[in-house]
Structures are given as C-alpha cells and as structure tokens.
Design a protein around this nucleic acid. Structure first.
Lengths: 222, 222
DNA sequence: CAGTGTAGGTACTGATCGGTAACATTTTGT
DNA sequence: ACAAAATGTTACCGATCAGTACCTACACTG
C-alpha cells in the first residue's frame, strides 16, 4: 500500500546504492513499527529491492538492526553539529537549543520516542549484540550533554547531564504511553529549571528560577 | 529451564483456577521477554495447561494482553495501599516511600522497567485496544501522585506529579537501555529535591534543598 | 568481444505464529 | 450415581518468519 511515494523516494529509480536504500527502509520501518514486527521481506520491498540483495549486504537481520541503530546514533550526532553551527562557542545556547528541539519532537504525533530506548525494550536479552551498540550510543549522548554543561561552565556537569537525560527519556516514553499533551512545554520548563540550578553555586542548594515566572500561561505550546 | 518451581507455583497441582494460572504465566512471560515474542503456546505451557483452555478463557491474545495490563495496574494499586498502611494519614511520607521503592526497583537486575510503558513501545498502533488500557492506567498513576501531593499540602500538586512521573519514567527506561548504575540514588536525590521545591511557596521560584534536611535516616524503607 | 561482479527474481526450507475443530478425559454440582 | 461443565489432547489451518539455493540480467572493465 501507498508504495507510490516510496517508489519515488527510495526505489531503484534513484541512483542510490541498494545498501543505503535498505538502510533507509529499515530505519523507517524499524522505527515506525518496531523491530520484531518488521520482516526482512518488508524491508527489502520498501527499499525497492529483494531479500537476496539484503542478505548480500547484511549478514543477518540482527546486523542490519545494529547498522540501523548506529545510523540513528550518527543522525543524533549531526543534530549536535547543527546546534554547534547555530550557536558557535555558546555551549549554554546549544544546550538550550537541544532542549527546545527535543520538546519540539515531542509535539510531533509521528514521533515514536527514542529509537535506541525502544530497541532496548524490544530486546530484553542483555547479551544481544545490538545492546552493546545501544549502550554505547546512549552513554555517548549523555557524555555530549555533560561536555556541553562543562563547556558552559555549569556546576556539576555530569550531574546536570544525568538530570536532563532522565527528564528527556521520561518525557519521550511518556509521550508514547499517554500522549504528548502539553508535555513539550513542561519539558522545557523543567529542563530550564535544571540548567538554571547549575548556573552557579553548587548542587541543588541554590535558588531556582525556572521559566520567567509569568503566571497564567504555563501551558503555551512550542 | 527451572520449571521445577514453576510447576509447583502455577501448575495444575495447585488449586488455582486455570484462568489465574494463565494470567500469572502471561504476566511473567510478557514482562520478562516482551509481548510479541511470547507465543500463546508458551504461556499455556508455563501455566501448566494448554492452548485450548487459554482460548476458552480469553477471546484472543490481545484480550489476554489487556487483562495482563489491567492486572499490572491492580498490582500497582496494591503498592499504594501498602504505603497508605505504612504511613497512615501522612501523604508526604507515602510519597517518599513510593520514591524509595521505585529507586529500589531500579537496582533490581531482573527489573525490566514499567510493563505498561514497555507494552506501549511494543504496540505502535495507537488504535490497539490495549493502548486505551495503558493510557488509562498511566493517567491513574499520575493522578495518584497528584492526589498524594495535594493531600501532603504541596504546592502545584499536578505539576509536581508530572515532574516526579517524568523523572521516574526516565529512570526506568534508562535503567533498561544503559543500566542502573547508581541510578537509584540519583532518582531519590532528584525526586526529593522536586518534592522539597513544592513544600511551600509556589512553582520553581523557591529555594531548593535537595537532600532532606533532617539528616540521618532519609533512606528508610517502607 | 570476453570476463567478472553486482543485482533481481523465484522458489524453497524448516520453524513458529495465532487460532480452531473434533474428540477424550476429568472435575464438579446435585 | 449421573449429567453437565470444564479441561486435556491432538491435529490441523493459513500466514509469516529468517535465511538459502539457484539462475538470470545487466554493467563495467580488459
């Protein structure tokens, strides 16, 4: 169904290597429908090719999955690069840009949360090779946050990174299970408060001014 | 493997109705291994019965799944009852007991996070009947938090409930994707700080003291 | 032109899935 | 004791799964 646009976007017509088409199709399907529910046939068909070509480029579905996860990690890295480009040298602004974009993602009804976290939920076997990829990438994301917090001169950067990270993960998973009603605004408010509590002084023992206190309109959309 | 105890706990020997045995087995397997990966045959076998009996009690796997989710909701309710019993009338203590127990769950290596959230991740189709169950139960949990916060006389109880809820969800999902290393302590620290910021005054514009002021036994169990 | 490697296509394996039919057996209520 | 209900057993259905064998078509390189 609706293969029309897919045919145009990533079918063989385009001069893109089958491998990349397969990866793009796998990313789309894995993220949208889940890992276990998507079969290799469906991926090959969505990529405008067939199963044999898939198995010529990837040793197994698990390896394709690992590649997909690595790709998602790279995609996240590119986002960080964009923040760096938008606010060169201003680590704090980059951090806040990240927060704003994450809140934006929440509002998107097509968003299915974090691909890595979802994959971890679908792969309970901790010995699964993809789990190592997930762990590495997730720790990398947290380290990015910590590095940014450190560059911004915030106190206890690792602690702040953990706080922001937990907050974001909670928001993303909550958006999936109960919906994203006004969650973006709440995420920003809480995240800004966390950042503010680390601007100076140490730890939580500091007065926190979250959002501009203007009462009344705390539910504004992005 | 290790069917010995299972045989004793939920096989037909025990005078438990097949329906309850099936539900218990489904809960165990769904939670431990995931929803899509566990087949009805495996559930029936783990319950010491067979597929036909399963289908005589549940119209479909989806309905069994919905019942399983409702059961998890009930189980959570019983926890709340325990907090109420442990700290009768003291809503704040109940809230903190909840936080401590959640932190405890994180440390358990067998913990697989929130069954409802995991199910939501495995069921991307928002029209799936189980999604309504998940949403209702999740909102119920949040409302419990808000009610407790209100009873404890904390400011902006709904806001605090959201904060604690996001924090907990983030911690649980993070424990699954990257591990629970020292996460329980961090959860308690952040949660206590959130609660403290609502003890008086309104919103974030209040001085926050993270760790409970009364030094000594802030780690007390339920 | 010949040779080589990549891609597409078809058909297959063996296993498992959710769900059902038909029948035998056990438990239960009275 | 007897009938009715609940449970157990086996076999089956159509669909789908991950993965493979085998062959053909094309494009590039010499």
């Amino acid at each position: 169904m609706k293969t029309a646009e897919n045919e145009l976007s990533l079918a063989k017509n385009a001069r893109i290597s089958p491998r990349q088409r397969l990866l793009a199709a796998a990313a789309e399907l894995f993220y949208r429908h889940g890992i276990r529910v998507v079969g290799v046939d469906a991926i090959a068909e969505a990529a405008g090719t067939n199963k044999m070509t898939l198995y010529r480029h990837f040793a197994s579905k698990d390896e394709l999955l690992a590649e997909y996860l690595r790709e998602m990690g790279k995609r996240g890295d590119q986002c960080w690069g964009a923040y760096e480009a938008a606010h060169p040298g201003d680590a704090l602004a980059q951090l806040r840009a990240w927060l704003a974009e994450m809140a934006d993602h929440l509002a998107n009804p097509d968003d299915r949360g974090c691909a890595l976290a979802n994959a971890a939920v679908e792969l309970p076997d901790k010995a699964h090779p993809a789990r190592r990829v997930i762990e590495k990438l997730k720790l990398g994301q947290r380290d990015r946050l910590a590095e940014l917090a450190r560059k911004a001169g915030l106190s206890e950067p690792e602690m702040l990174a953990d706080e922001l990270y937990l907050l974001l993960e909670g928001a993303r998973v909550t958006a999936q299970s109960v919906g994203a009603e006004g969650l973006g605004a709440r995420l920003i408010r809480m995240g800004e408060a966390m950042i503010a509590s680390h601007v100076s002084g140490k730890g939580w023992r500091v007065s926190v001014r979250a959002t501009p206190v203007r009462a009344g309109n705390d539910e504004q959309k992005s």
